[in-house]
Every structure is written in structure tokens, then in C-alpha cells.
């Protein structure tokens, strides 16, 4: 880890001011940032510690609105009584207890991906400015099974698919002031000009995440597949939600994590469920449709099978 200067700020304004400087990064939980710095993947000259900004902490919950400050830790979010069940499910197997105690909601949403070529300081992959994605001809057992882009990394967050399944919005402070947008829109597959997993700039500040009342009343569930019982980033994850009207599904969301550059939805699969009763045959059809367009790489065809099964099971669980 290269040496750096360090400042603590007490307000979002102070943070915004300092973050305008070149090669300056904000530190909140630090669990991803310090890992990147220890590998020398990023070498900021200055760190701005935002943990003292009181307004970014805490959870406010009403029947119509669930708002989580960006500095709320994953553990605090998981423990709150008003936190939707799907979020609790997503956090139960996210990282480890210590990491959940440290990591913040804001940081979780903008963490960098876990691709081992990206994480290796000695590999210059496409996302880090190299000529091509090294996973394509390399070991790609954990990589993307969807998407056309250059980069085959996958979204690591457990929280993001669950929040998107609840149509969460994110409140940000950018150069243009305070802005609110659907969380899903934060995630944009990297392009040659924007080699990043999301649209949040280094000087942007995430203030909070919000879930509206409609979504809070949906049936929703989160399933995660790992190769050991705990402490692994998702090999595949699925968040699903729906409103049940007289036993028929409405407002269906099925969001898969760890299968593409961004949290992945297949509209046609959701449509297959909309207005229908949930049963075994329907769940299987939805799952089949979800994976129909998957294009696995050499080593990760198994992820398609796992995804199909997770979608099927998640859809069935919406009944309960």
C-alpha cells in the first residue's frame, strides 16, 4: 500500500470539496478500498474518511418508505427489524460477520469486481486498460455467462440484485447536486471509454438507498450459490420479487447476480410469469426462458445449470 494523506470530514459538503482534488478517494468501510490499495491496483494520494458524516448513517422506515443511509453497515441493515426479508436473506451469506460489521451499504454497491485477472497486479486486463479480457482464453470458471462486451467480470454484490428486485433507488450527490435514480441504472456494462462496472464517479457521494411502499409489500426472496458453505462471493445468485394478486404474480422482477457485468434481468422470463399462477411447470418454464440466451465460456457452463435451478426455486418460493 502506497503512503497517502488522510483527512476526516464531518459533512457531505466537506467531502465533496476534498474529493474534487486529483487522485483522491473516499474511504468508508474500507473493506474493498484497502484491498485494492494493498494490491496496488489503485494508489490514491489522499483518502477522505467520510465515516463522520452523521446524516449518511441510519435507517428510517415507514410503511411507504424504507431509507438506508449509505454509511449504514451491512450488519446494521441486516439487524434492523424493518429491513425487508429479501435483504436479510441476501446479507445472511454476504461475506463474513466481520466484513458485514465494517462494510457499508454504499460501498457494497460500488465495490469492484472479483475477477482474478482484474485483482492480479501482474495482469493488465482489459478493464484496467489492457488490450483484451484475459478471462476469455484464461480460467473463466467464475465469469460471465451473459453479455456481449469486452469484459467478462461479474457483479459481486449480494445486496444489489436484492435491492433491484425491490426497485430501489439510490440518492447521490454529484457535481450537479442531489440526484435520485433507479439503482439498476447505476450498473452499466463497461465500455472502452468507461472501463468501470458502474456509473458512480470517484468524486460522487452515495447518500442513501430507498425502497418504496409498493415494493416493500411484494413477496421476495434471494438465493445464493457458493462452493463452500459460507464466505464466498456468489457463484450465481438470484433475487426474485412479485406481487401476488389472487394467487397470480404481478410486477415480477428476477435479477441474477454474478452472471454478467451487471445485475441481469431477462424481461421475457419475467413476462412469462406475469399474470400467472406459480406452479412447478410455470417456474421451470420461467427458468428455462431465463437461461435461454446464456452464452457460457469454456469453463462455466455449469453456471447456466445452477442459474436455471436457482431461478426455478426462487420463483417457487414467491408463492410462500
Amino acid at each position: 500500500m502506497k503512503s497517502f494523506s488522510y483527512a476526516k470530514v464531518a459533512t457531505a459538503e466537506e467531502a465533496a470539496g476534498l474529493l474534487k482534488q486529483r487522485n483522491t478517494r473516499l474511504i468508508a468501510g474500507g473493506t474493498d478500498l484497502l484491498g485494492l490499495m494493498k494490491e496496488r491496483l489503485i494508489e490514491p494520494d489522499r483518502l477522505v474518511d467520510v465515516n463522520g458524516i452523521a446524516q449518511l448513517r441510519g435507517i428510517t422506515a415507514t410503511k411507504e418508505n424504507f431509507r438506508v443511509g449509505a454509511l449504514t453497515t451491512l450488519a446494521e441493515l441486516a439487524a434492523h427489524q424493518a429491513t425487508p426479508l429479501i435483504i436479510k436473506e441476501a446479507l445472511a451469506d454476504a461475506a463474513t460477520p466481520q466484513l458485514r460489521n465494517m462494510a457499508t451499504v454504499g460501498g457494497n454497491l460500488v465495490q469492484r469486481n472479483r475477477c482474478w485477472y482484474f485483482r492480479s497486479a501482474e495482469h493488465r486486463c482489459w478493464l484496467k486498460g489492457g488490450p483484451r479480457c484475459l478471462a476469455v482464453d484464461g480460467d473463466n470458471r467464475y465469469h460471465a455467462i451473459y453479455g456481449e462486451g469486452e469484459c467478462r467480470q461479474v457483479t459481486p454484490s449480494d445486496l444489489a440484485p436484492a435491492l433491484i428486485a425491490l426497485d430501489a433507488t439510490v440518492v447521490m450527490r454529484t457535481d450537479e447536486g442531489e440526484d435520485s435514480l433507479p439503482l439498476a441504472q447505476l450498473y452499466v456494462a463497461p465500455t472502452a471509454r468507461h472501463r468501470r462496472e458502474h456509473a458512480v464517479g470517484d468524486d460522487d457521494l452515495i447518500l442513501a438507498v430507498r425502497i418504496g411502499g409498493d415494493a416493500l409489500r411484494r413477496h421476495a426472496t434471494y438465493l445464493k450459490f457458493m462452493e463452500r458453505a459460507t464466505w464466498q462471493f456468489a457463484v450465481v445468485s438470484v433475487a426474485a420479487s412479485a406481487r401476488l394478486v389472487e394467487g397470480r404474480a404481478q410486477d415480477v422482477r428476477i435479477v441474477a447476480g454474478a452472471v454478467a457485468n451487471i445485475p441481469w434481468r431477462v424481461k421475457a422470463a419475467e413476462d412469462l410469469l406475469a399474470g400467472e399462477k406459480i406452479d412447478d411447470a410455470r417456474a421451470l418454464a420461467v427458468a428455462e426462458r431465463f437461461v435461454r440466451d446464456a452464452r457460457p465460456l469454456r469453463d462455466n457452463a455449469y453456471k447456466v445449470a445452477v442459474l436455471r435451478e436457482l431461478v426455478r426455486r426462487a420463483v417457487l418460493r414467491l408463492k410462500d
Binding site: G30, T31, P97, Q98, M102
Partner: peptide, 19 residues
């Protein structure tokens, strides 16, 4: 490296002393 910070278990290797 687990220690308690404000009574909560954290990894000391991912925590800055100055913080």
C-alpha cells in the same frame, strides 16, 4: 486479526489505525 472496535468484531488488517 479479529479485534473489537467499539465492541464489534472487525478485521484489524482492513482498518487504518488513524481511523
Amino acid at each position: 486479526c479479529t479485534v473489537l472496535v467499539e465492541g464489534v468484531a472487525e478485521y484489524a488488517c482492513l482498518t487504518l489505525a488513524v481511523a
